[in-house]
């Protein structure tokens, strides 16, 4: 299991534009880091680099287990990393039940995981609806369900709470706390503060 994530002097560029230089960051089990910065500072790109979608110009993303042994990044991303971006990866024409079943199964659900996710995120009344009929907040809850149904150590979250109302922000905050208590790691790009104690890292400052 991933015990720590370390970014060593990471430089990211999109096209010709350098987003930030020499950003270093270590995240250990049980910790949450909130990435802040202006629009376009590179918060989302940083998350995508950790997920392996963007190759950094320089620097390295490394995953280590509890004994400080390096985990192969491909293996870590295939089994232990969740990424939830602006786009939730949900198909509008399919029902919430079908999409949840696919996402949870694909990402490695545990026994009873889907039921637990449905329970904690209040999805039961939505399951038979087509995804396109859901509101933005309902869609986000459905997308968050995969984090619960298929437990993985590192959560990469991009504005995870923005479409949620106060009640669900609090509930998701509780889920995050539980994840951290269980030795999980959270790296989230945010504008509003997270509802949990989190170290704040300003991405824009590393320009």
């Amino acid at each position: 299991m991933i015990h720590s994530l370390s970014l060593a002097s990471l430089t990211l560029a999109r096209g010709e534009r350098t987003l930030f230089r020499d950003l270093s960051l270590t995240l250990n089990a049980g910790e949450a880091v909130a990435l802040t910065g202006a629009n376009g500072a590179g918060k989302t790109s940083l998350l995508r680099a950790v997920a392996g979608f963007i190759r950094p110009e320089t620097g390295e993303v490394a995953f280590h287990d509890a004994d400080a042994n390096a985990i192969d990044p491909t293996e870590a991303r295939a089994r232990q990393v969740h990424m939830l971006g602006h786009l939730e990866g949900l198909k509008g024409a399919r029902t919430a039940r079908e999409e949840l079943a696919f996402q949870a199964g694909w990402l490695g659900q545990v026994h009873g995981g889907v039921d637990e996710a449905v329970q904690t995120l209040g999805l039961r009344p939505l399951l038979d609806l087509e995804v396109r009929k859901l509101s933005a907040g309902q869609r986000r809850r459905l997308a968050l369900a995969r984090l619960i149904a298929a437990p993985r150590a590192l959560w990469l979250l991009d504005e995870p709470l923005s479409p949620l109302d106060a009640r669900w922000r609090e509930a998701v905050g509780a889920l995050m706390t539980r994840h951290l208590d269980g030795g999980g790691l959270i790296l989230a790009a945010v504008h509003d503060p997270l509802p949990i104690p989190a170290r704040s890292v300003d991405v824009g400052a590393a320009r």
Partner: peptide, 11 residues
């Protein structure tokens, strides 16, 4: 719709 990211993080 972002599902490709999901597929890339699969087993």
């Amino acid at each position: 719709d972002g599902a490709l990211d999901l597929l890339a993080l699969g087993p």
